[in-house]
Simulated scan of single mutants.
Amino acid sequence: MYYYDPAGNGGKRFGVRFSAEITAWIFDNGAATQANYLADSVTATTDAVVVHFNHATLGLLRIGTIAAYGHIEGRNEQLENPVSLLR
């Protein structure tokens, strides 16, 4: 999932890596930093992937574009997946 402010600046990318262990991460485009989250923050079912990004500063009042996509081995497989932000 990614988002940018209404002017198209800044932004963060939120991801889940499915490998031997499922982990989550946040990459901050503005600061070029990444925070990693352990597998217990991710719940994956056949219908949804739910991730708890505790302590993630989203700046929800400043979100312009928000979207999710499926990226597998260098290829975007799914685009514009539905996103629900819960507080």
Rank of each mutant, 00 (worst) to 15 (best):
M1D: 14
M1F: 13
M1I: 08
Y2W: 02
Y2C: 00
Y2Q: 00
Y3P: 00
Y4R: 13
Y4D: 03
Y4L: 05
Y4A: 04
Y4S: 05
D5Q: 14
P6L: 05
P6M: 05
P6E: 13
P6A: 12
A7H: 11
G8L: 07
G8T: 08
N9W: 06
N9V: 04
N9T: 04
N9K: 08
G10A: 05
G10W: 09
G10D: 06
G10C: 01
G11H: 13
G11W: 11
G11K: 11
K12D: 03
R13I: 02
R13T: 00
R13L: 03
R13P: 02
F14C: 02
F14R: 01
G15P: 01
G15R: 07
V16E: 13
V16L: 05
V16A: 11
R17C: 03
F18P: 02
F18Q: 15
S19K: 12
A20K: 12
A20L: 06
A20P: 01
A20V: 06
E21C: 03
A24Y: 07
A24E: 06
A24M: 05
W25F: 15
I26G: 00
I26L: 05
I26M: 01
I26Y: 02
F27P: 04
D28T: 09
D28L: 03
D28Q: 04
N29G: 00
N29T: 14
G30N: 14
G30E: 15
G30Y: 10
A31W: 03
A31H: 12
A31M: 14
A31Y: 08
A32P: 00
T33N: 13
Q34N: 01
A35N: 12
N36Q: 07
N36V: 05
Y37Q: 07
Y37I: 06
A39P: 03
D40L: 10
D40I: 09
D40R: 12
A44W: 10
A44M: 08
T45S: 15
T45N: 12
T46S: 06
D47H: 01
D47Q: 12
D47W: 01
D47F: 04
A48K: 09
V49W: 02
V49G: 00
V50A: 08
V50F: 05
V51E: 01
H52N: 13
F53S: 08
N54C: 03
N54H: 04
N54Y: 06
H55M: 10
A56I: 10
T57E: 05
T57N: 15
T57W: 03
T57Q: 14
T57F: 02
G59N: 11
G59T: 04
G59F: 02
G59A: 01
L60C: 07
L60P: 05
L61A: 13
R62F: 08
G64F: 09
T65E: 15
T65Y: 14
T65V: 14
I66D: 01
I66P: 02
A67H: 06
A67W: 08
A68C: 13
A68S: 13
A68K: 12
Y69Q: 06
H71I: 03
H71W: 15
H71M: 08
I72W: 09
G74A: 13
R75D: 02
R75L: 07
N76P: 00
N76I: 04
E77R: 06
E77G: 00
Q78K: 08
L79P: 01
L79D: 04
E80V: 10
E80I: 10
N81Y: 02
P82T: 07
P82A: 10
V83D: 03
S84L: 08
L85Q: 02
L86G: 09
L86S: 14
L86A: 12
L86N: 14
R87K: 13
R87I: 11
